[in-house]
């Protein structure tokens, strides 16, 4: 825990990169440095990785599945006996995906080769933040956003207009939160139902429609001609025009 305390942000993490291809190591190294990570150590096989792991105690590991002297899965099992360090797998085989999905190996995430630099950095940052800056610390803060002149505070579930303040019901809140998370994108009726009622859409079509209508009455200036909460016929709904405070 002392480590966590000392750490200012995830870029302070000491990273261990294990892959047998030197060119790939070099590229990943570059990508990570560009992103802002500074402490990066590389290893080209299991044995080297083992040594470095003991002496350097890295805060995060990027691990290739197939290595010349063993596979990443067994190396992970070894690591897991002594440490809960976040591990991101790099896999080059479709079969690995099956194992990664099927077995609870204790990997935090995985990327299939070939990958774009952005994929790698996004996933790595997610894995590291989850491990060292857990959501619990940030949970108190939910977004506040605007739809035109209406302000919506997801902390209190309040819809604030110039001369009025309305409260969202629990279901309306769940629906709006889901729509906000996917703002600008279509959300299927199925996903909305799972968010609000933890069930499939079948049988809830009318209920969903009624709740969307009530939600519109609260957030739309003209509920009959919606501008922000749009219907995508046959598929679902979409929240547009969101301005983050």
């Amino acid at each position: 825990m002392t480590v966590v305390m000392k750490m200012k942000d995830i870029f302070d993490c000491k990273l261990l990169m294990v892959d047998d291809e030197p060119e790939l190591r070099k590229m990943v190294n570059e990508i990570l440095r560009r992103e802002g990570f500074v402490k990066i150590i590389s290893a080209s096989n299991c044995n080297e990785a083992r040594q470095i792991f003991i002496h350097e105690k890295p805060d995060g590991v990027i691990l290739d599945v197939s290595l010349p002297d063993g596979d990443g899965f067994s190396l992970l099992s070894e690591i897991r006996t002594t440490s809960a360090v976040p591990v991101l797998f790099l896999s080059a085989r479709d079969e690995d995906e099956n194992r990664l999905l099927g077995l609870g190996l204790g990997a935090d995430d995985y990327i299939t080769k070939p990958f774009l630099p952005r994929e790698l950095t996004l996933r790595l940052r997610a894995v590291l933040s989850r491990a060292y800056f857990p959501v619990i610390l940030k949970r108190t803060e939910k977004p506040i956003f605007r739809l035109g002149k209406t302000k919506i505070d997801l902390n209190s579930g309040a819809v604030i207009t110039k001369n009025d303040q309305l409260m969202l019901t629990a279901k309306e809140f769940a629906l709006l939160e889901k729509l906000y998370e996917n703002r600008g994108n279509i959300v299927t009726g199925d996903s909305l139902c799972r968010a609000a009622w933890s069930d499939n859409l079948y049988g809830y079509e009318n209920t969903l429609m009624v709740h969307i209508r009530r939600l519109r009455e609260k957030i739309e200036p003209e509920p009959s001609t919606p501008r922000y909460l749009l219907t995508v016929r046959g598929l679902g709904y979409k929240l547009t025009g969101v301005e983050d405070r």
Binding site: I31, S66, E95, K113
Partner: peptide, 21 residues
């Protein structure tokens, strides 16, 4: 086939990575 596709993936990662950069 699985072996070949495996062998292609690592060099392709490097091509994709640098071209994207």
């Amino acid at each position: 086939i699985a072996g070949i596709s495996h062998d292609i993936r690592t060099p392709l990662s490097i091509v994709m990575g640098y071209s994207n950069q």
